[in-house]
Design a protein around this nucleic acid. Structure first.
Lengths: 198, 198, 198, 198
DNA sequence: CATGAATGAGGATTCATTCAT
DNA sequence: GATGAATGAATCCTCATTCAT
């Protein structure tokens, strides 16, 4: 009961944030979106800041759960297929929550300048996703699908490209099927942009 | 005379924005940084919004000028070297202005939702950089250094990876030499992450 | 049954008021102190204002009852002893409830400015105590222990000194035995600060 | 210029506080009283708290200045006359600012419970006045006008009686000439309430 | 042109009170 | 009767913008 309300508030907050931006999203707007009054928000969250932090944490944990599920499911598949599944998963989740995560991330970065150590928690999710990609990468190296040389750079590169990809879809307000956009990304990542000698 | 003042204000604005964030940067702070009073800012810029827009445009044009200069200079070199030079150029400029551009870009994205058509101007710079990369890519294809198949995706991918790269350096507050960070990026981009068969 | 609850609420209210102050004491705090929910408070008292007024009246009547009891008990004693007993009684009660009465009195004074006639009820208790002192004073005059000249001023003076005395103990957070603090007060009051000629 | 504004704000604040009470006095009310807008208040004072503290300090220092002036002036007079002058001075100042000082003092007392050490500054003024009375008392003892026995209690007693006296005038909304109310107080204080044997 | 005090709309937060369960 | 979540009016404070000097 109480939990449903929290969820409803978080969902509303995400919508309003996505539409109005981090700063423009007023508590009144969020309340109106849920269909309650401002005061109610404060029955569930300490203050605006804590509401946003909770939202970030919840969404982050959702993504990680999705990824772990996907990794579990694809355990027997070869590296390329697993990576493809993983990225699709990230893409799918990001399409839904990208603007939110992006806004909150930007904010972390901003405030990270002043309050040292706060940034750590804010980057946790990205780091967790990265860790899973690293782990996956080790399989890739073992399978002979990845060179070990630059392996440490790959997670970041992949995430960067994913992020940009989602961002461009957001801007274009279109949503190409995941396969279609991930395929060239994977081709370039694995095989390189240069023509294969053979 | 008038121009010098504008430049001073823009510089101050960038510093304050980088330190305090888009929203926290107050007109008073900017004025104080220049060493003038608030009123003066309004003699040079219509309002806060226009000051920020000008700042974004100016910095954008500076980057484009740098890139064009670099492309001019490297005209006789092979594709890989030119691309390397180009990315170094982007990296260098981004290191100096990244936080600014990132903040302003986020803001554009945010307000892009509401004010249709406004976003276009905001994305102009990224698009211009992208165009130059496309153009460079054509040489790459001609030189046989790039497959033509996914050529249309390459500019975006490269830019995404550059952006992430700069971002990570900002977060880590360290600044590895350009060559060192761009090398693996280029290796992966051109040759792929998978081991070359030969 | 109903009465016990009222008493419990009033006691809790007094504690919270004493700890947090008139304004900072929230209905939720009072309810929590009793161990009930806010709604319950409203089953026993019209609203916050009425709860506080009741509290003031109840405590006031308790003091008056104590004083009357003391006066009854000391009926046969000489003036000085009766006055001493009376003041000890006031001191004892004040030590327990001073902060409360002080807060409520201040509040009366404040609102007395706006709502004419309201103040009267608020000052009732002080007036009642004063009346008893006046009455006692008449015995003092008869006994030859008081000059009749300024007799009308004495009750107020005594009360003022008592109030200050309690206040200073509150501030110092110490509680000297009643006799010890009342003795010099009585000496000064009855014999004066100037050395006796004899 | 800037100082005039500060003074105007402080005066307005005092009026509004006296009329509405410590808590009911809104920043908007104070601003309206001065004839400026809220924002202006914040150009002169950090926040509400600081405005009130400043007001208390200023009024306190005004009283001390008055007292020191009076003590200076009466230097050659005998103790009784000097004390009379001193008390008149306190009475006069209190009549003008009593409600203010009383409100602020009550507030100090309240918050003194929680924030230890804060109370000290709040009680400073009362303590300063007390010090001057002590000093004056020493002359009284030397002059043979005061018994030294309870001398340490006298300042507090006098102040308590003065405070009550002013309070009662405030409540009664009448303002008896200073001499008339101070005379019986002094008579009682110096000669005692009991009839002189001689 | 520069100044900087004044403006006042705007937003986060609190808390007495209500009322459906 | 008891509960406690919902309500929303009320208030402090901020800061972009203006304009008289």
């Amino acid at each position: 009961m109480k939990e449903e309300a929290r969820v409803a508030i978080l969902d509303a907050a995400e919508q309003v944030l996505a539409e109005q931006g981090l700063h423009a999203a007023r508590m009144d707007d969020i309340a109106a979106r849920v269909g309650v009054s401002v005061g109610t928000l404060y029955n569930y969250f300490e203050d605006r800041q804590q509401l946003l932090e909770t939202l970030r944490d919840v969404r982050g944990r959702e993504l990680l759960a999705l990824l772990d599920e996907e990794l579990e499911r694809s355990q027997q598949l070869p590296y390329r297929a697993r990576l493809h599944g993983f990225l699709c998963c990230v893409l799918e989740h990001s399409r839904t929550h990208f603007r939110l995560l992006s806004l909150l991330f930007e904010d972390s970065l901003r405030r990270g300048a002043s309050r040292e150590g706060d940034l750590d928690r804010h980057l946790e999710i990205r780091r967790e996703v990265s860790l899973r990609l690293e782990h996956l990468g080790k399989q890739g190296v073992k399978d002979g699908a990845l060179r070990s040389e630059d392996a440490s750079h790959y997670p970041a590169m992949l995430l960067d490209m994913m992020q940009g990809l989602v961002l461009r879809q957001l801007i274009a307000k279109q949503s190409t099927p995941a396969d279609e956009v991930i395929a060239p990304l994977l081709r370039c990542f694995l095989d390189g942009a240069a023509p294969r000698p053979g």
